[in-house]
Nucleic acid binder design. Structure first.
Lengths: 337, 337
DNA sequence: GGGAATTTCGTAACCGGTTTCGTAACCGTT
DNA sequence: AACGGTTACGAAACCGGTTACGAAATTCCC
């Protein structure tokens, strides 16, 4: 059996109350008594039961949930998401909160909340949940912060980058290199990815270039395999694009491979741009031109915002971070035939 | 204020005891009464407070900790580890356990255990902790399972592959291709990685090939960058190796890059082999020859074993999983000069 | 030296559940 | 009618903490 506050009290010859006072650094206890109790606490390495604490003071479990889509595979295999996770977990750790991983199947995440296991949630990849998850969370007034823009509503808190700006950086870069047939591959699953996709069209229009819908592909998933398959499909065409903009780096890696397998060279024949700047982007062959977004910082920021919400601090409902175009080896001037 | 068992009892006109019986599917309650209580539970979507439960029945918090090294960056950016994480979290999720991420700085993970926040730990990358973490866990009799072999002692439970066999598969493959100057790059941080490294020497000796210590490099970390730097160092030599065996895929990707930057081709000039078979291994250029280990299954298995330990079931102290050599494009016959 | 203020500490209730044990009500037997 | 055996339920203690309140002991002040 483990040591309890009562046992410490008994050995010190005082009441539980006094021990509790010492544990919580409260006044009204004689320095000598405090010292004696501290000695016992250290001797037994006594740690007050967190659950008993949470239940007696009617408050904080100090636990926060990271909500992950049920189809977790692509999240765990995308270094962008794992970097966000790292940011979330690091920030919580530093602030003394504990992180629980919660899979968003059915409604069990609501149970986790009602059972007081967590005080709120950080949403990892909010585009991949059931449509109504946001409504449910809002309806039940569960505190949460999303790591991506979900909708235009002001009622929800999120941290994101300016996806439109990021997309424009890519498109301006490709257009400046002379590309006119630029494909886009990506799943418009939520507001932020829709913005990314829209920038493709907007940029073309801005420069008076034709918009060819057949050059916009919407795969089922955002995996390397999807990028590979979609790019292969494009390259089988009689008139393939000279540049492909993919919604993320993981897909871009697959696309480069497909292009090479189809007998084309990157970037000599086809330029490729990704999004995120995952660590591997600078190690693939050719190195990947991409848009860097601060994944780790995004996670930290989301966690910080959630804690502030829990502490009833007034905070802005969204936080927009900077992006940067990283030009590497996968993009080059259009081939002059 | 949230609904409690007492409130349900009051509205049903019964005692807390009876409601508790219904909640836990216990006998001794009239079907009609049970129904009335169930109706109220559903109406309010009542979820019993998990902490109150954990504290009253002197038992299970149903929480398990995933212990992660403080220097978490390389763990989160290595798809092998994140796949293990996915396995752990999926298994726990299916079995109704909750997963908490715990950083292993100082001794706070012991606090987390003593505070009853978790019932036990899965150790993610046990080579990277402070030396004494295992001793501490053992000394305090904290239930834990490691996802890698730590030492030869029988006192600890772990899941692993046969690293020696895996290494031998690589070496036999390279030697069969005619390679004689085979380098090894990797950090011998724990028993399993030492076995991997030893297989390099054992295989050379077995085939009567010379063992050249200058071809064995021990970088500080296991990152892509380390693999890159170490390989570059090797390739600057007057008599560079014709093949490099790296302790993991992430490093191998860096090595391929360095070799190419040094003006050599893979696999024509230098063959490269990794370890793990991360998802990206088949998408890099050239595709990576590697040893597949079942990362996801390893995670699941570790979680399963920990649960069985907590349930006092007798289980073997280790579980060894199969490996498989995956030959891809990064290895080829030695160049005949 | 006596009353007030302050310091120090304990009693008991409480948080939201579980569990032990006792008992009233009902049943069927003889 | 008396008895024993179920069935259905509640009172109260308990888990390990926190907290409101009261009171004893000490100090202060005139």
């Amino acid at each position: 059996m483990n040591i309890t506050i009562g046992e410490i009290a008994r050995q010190a010859g005082v009441s539980k109350t006094t021990v509790s006072r010492v544990l919580n650094n409260k006044p009204d206890v004689d320095p000598a008594t405090r010292e004696k109790i501290m000695a016992l606490i250290n001797e037994y390495n006594f740690q007050p039961n967190a659950f008993a604490k949470a239940i007696s003071r009617q408050s904080s479990s100090q636990h926060i949930g990271l909500l992950i889509p049920h189809k977790a595979e692509y999240v765990f295999s995308n270094a962008f998401y794992t970097e966000v996770m790292r940011g979330v977990s690091t920030e919580l750790d530093e602030q003394g909160y504990y992180l629980m991983l919660c899979y968003a199947h059915d409604v069990n995440y609501m149970d986790i909340y009602h059972q007081k296991r967590v005080e709120g949630f950080v949403l990892l990849s909010p585009g991949s949940y059931n449509k109504n998850i946001i409504e449910t969370l809002n309806a039940e007034e569960v505190p949460f912060v999303s790591t991506s823009k979900i909708s235009e509503q002001e009622t929800m808190t999120y941290v994101d980058i300016d996806n439109h700006q990021g997309g424009m950086l890519v498109m301006e870069h490709l257009i400046a290199l002379g590309h006119r047939r630029i494909a886009y591959i990506g799943k418009p699953s939520l507001t932020s990815s829709i913005e990314r996709m829209n920038s493709h069209r907007v940029a073309l229009e801005k420069h008076g270039l034709p918009y060819d819908p057949s050059l916009v592909l919407v795969p089922e998933t955002s995996s390397t395999e999807s990028g590979h398959d979609a790019a292969r499909f494009l390259m089988q065409d009689d008139n393939p694009p000279t540049a492909i903009f993919l919604a993320n780096d993981v897909m871009a890696v697959g696309a480069i491979k497909a292009i090479q397998e189809s007998g084309f060279r990157v970037p000599e024949d086809v330029s490729v741009v990704g999004f995120d700047d995952i660590p591997l982007a600078m190690y693939v062959n050719p190195t990947l031109t991409t848009v860097r977004q601060p994944a780790y910082e995004k996670g930290r920021c989301a966690a910080r915002m959630l804690i502030e919400i829990l502490q009833k601090k007034p905070i802005p409902h969204c936080q927009i971070m900077d992006v940067e175009l990283i030009v590497r080896g996968s993009t080059g001037p259009v081939k002059t035939t």
